[in-house]
C-alpha cells in the first residue's frame, strides 16, 4: 500500500483503519510505501508498531519502503529503525520476493 502526505494525529487513524485489516487477509507480505510521506509523528509510528505486532502474531511479513531521510530520522530517534524491515524502495522488496 502507498501512503501520501503527513502521518500525524489527524491522518493516522485512517491509515490504521485500512492497514490493520490487511493482516486478516490471505497475504504473505505487506509493504507500506512511504516515499510520498514527508513527515511522521508518534501517532504514525504507533500505527506501524501495532502493524509490526500483528505481523509477528500472524507471521505475515511487514516492511516499510522509501522513507525519506527526515522520516527515517524520526524512526531512529524512536530507536525503532532496526526493529522494522526498511528498504530504500518498494521495488527492491518486491524484486527480492520474486527472485526467491
Amino acid at each position: 500500500m502507498s501512503l501520501g502526505g503527513d502521518l500525524d494525529m489527524s491522518t493516522s487513524p485512517q491509515v490504521r483503519k485500512v492497514l490493520l485489516p490487511i493482516f486478516r487477509k490471505n497475504v504473505s507480505h505487506i509493504i507500506v510505501d512511504l516515499k510520498d510521506v514527508p513527515y511522521i509523528d508518534s501517532s504514525g509510528i504507533a500505527t506501524f508498531v501495532e502493524s509490526l505486532q500483528l505481523s509477528r502474531k500472524t507471521q505475515i511479513r511487514f516492511s516499510l519502503a522509501g522513507a525519506c531521510p527526515k522520516v527515517e530520522s524520526i524512526f531512529d530517534l524512536a530507536h525503532l529503525k532496526t526493529i522494522f524491515e526498511m528498504a530504500p524502495d518498494a521495488g527492491e522488496l518486491i524484486g527480492g520476493e520474486q527472485s526467491r
Binding site: S42, I45, V49, E50, L52, Q53, I74, A78
Partner: peptide, 17 residues
Amino acid sequence: DFSEVRPGGLGMHFIKS
C-alpha cells in the same frame, strides 16, 4: 522504555530530545 516495542509513549522522548 525504548526496549519495549509497543505503540505509544514516544512523544515525551521526542520532546526531551
